[in-house]
């Protein structure tokens, strides 16, 4: 097990190098001059100040060298300093809790609702419940993200007043429920379909006959036997969507005014604040990779036939 984790961590190194380089190059390729953007429209910095700034942020050096500086910092756990002189890690530390709360809440809502609906639909394959759920997921897939977000905000937040409409003043969970639900909604269709298919595949298995022959109550047969087996493929998707939920917060945080990482990245891009964008994005990559590793470990626990030690 330990050996497996170490092998996986080593395997991540090239992935981290590749993705950070990609992000770095993308930011490097952004149009415009970050120093001029820093100065603000219409203002001109004196050449000496400008040169000092360029040197400080290694902007006078080629891409490779800039990337090298950045990577060196990253290895030391230093995300660098942004153009306004703030520690990127401090920015991240401030924003991270909001994103984490939002992402995890959305993810939990998605998991509970998606798996439940998928199970109900699968156990009633071809019935009314099944039809309603499948139609519902199709509708959700067809509606644009921001439409749902704005409608939910206006309808449930402003008109009905059930939820705060924006900001995080009321803390968790009140302030997070509405944005999290909207975010979750977009992960639900895939999860429902996958769970449903998995349930249908398992519900006629031989071991289900055994469970019935043992005289177990229906609920126990569904939850302990059918669902438990059906979850094996669902868990990997659930894990991947945790990463998806975190990245999905970028738009939602904007609409609902939540000062999380999405907010920080968004501002970073519009202000051409390269270090912020690169720092936060690489962090998200790392988180995503860690989640993947965790998912594989949980996967092994869920299905005892999968031996982690035997896998690359």
């Amino acid at each position: 097990m330990t050996g497996y984790v170490i092998r996986r961590l080593v395997g991540m190194v090239p992935v981290v190098l590749g993705t950070t380089l990609l992000i770095f190059a993308a930011v490097y390729a952004l149009p415009g001059d970050p120093i001029k953007a820093l100065a603000g429209p219409g203002r001109v910095l004196s050449p000496s100040v400008e040169d000092a700034l360029r040197e400080r942020f290694h902007l006078d050096q080629p891409l490779w060298s800039q990337y090298g500086h950045y990577l060196g910092g990253l290895v030391r756990g230093d995300l660098g300093i942004d153009l306004q002189g703030q520690e990127v890690s401090a920015l991240v530390a401030r924003a991270w809790p909001y994103t984490l709360q939002l992402g995890l809440t959305a993810w939990a809502i998605m998991a509970v609702v998606g798996i439940s609906l998928g199970t109900f639909a699968g156990m009633r394959q071809g019935g009314t419940v099944d039809w309603v759920v499948l139609t519902g997921t199709t509708v959700v897939v067809g509606v644009p993200y921001f439409v749902v977000a704005y409608v939910a905000q206006i309808l449930l937040g402003v008109n009905l007043g059930w939820f705060p409409t924006s900001g995080v003043r009321e803390g968790w969970p009140a302030s997070y429920l509405l944005p999290a639900a909207v975010l979750a909604l977009f992960g639900i269709p895939e999860l429902v379909r996958l769970t449903r298919a998995s349930i249908i595949e398992n519900r006629y298995a031989d071991y289900v006959d055994t469970a019935i022959a043992k005289g177990l109550p229906h609920r126990m047969i569904v939850v302990r036997h059918i669902l438990r087996n059906s979850l094996v493929p669902v868990v990997s998707v659930l894990g991947l969507s945790l990463g998806y939920m975190v990245s999905g917060t970028v738009l939602i945080e904007g609409i609902f005014n939540i000062p999380g990482l999405g907010y920080v990245v968004f501002n970073g891009i519009s202000q051409q604040n390269g270090p912020v964008v690169v720092g936060v994005c690489s962090l998200l990559v790392l988180v995503y990779l860690m989640i993947n590793l965790l998912v594989d470990i949980v996967y092994g626990l869920l299905d005892p036939r999968i031996s982690l030690a035997g896998r690359r």
């Binding site: 031989d206 071991y207 022959a213 036997h225 438990r228 087996n229 299905d303 005892p304």
Partner: peptide, 20 residues
């Protein structure tokens, strides 16, 4: 079922739940 009449199936590998 199970309490008064028990059943043993032919193929125990598929008749037992693989993940429990």
């Amino acid at each position: 079922r199970g309490a008064r009449v028990g059943m043993v199936f032919q193929d125990a590998l598929s008749a037992l739940n693989p993940v429990l």
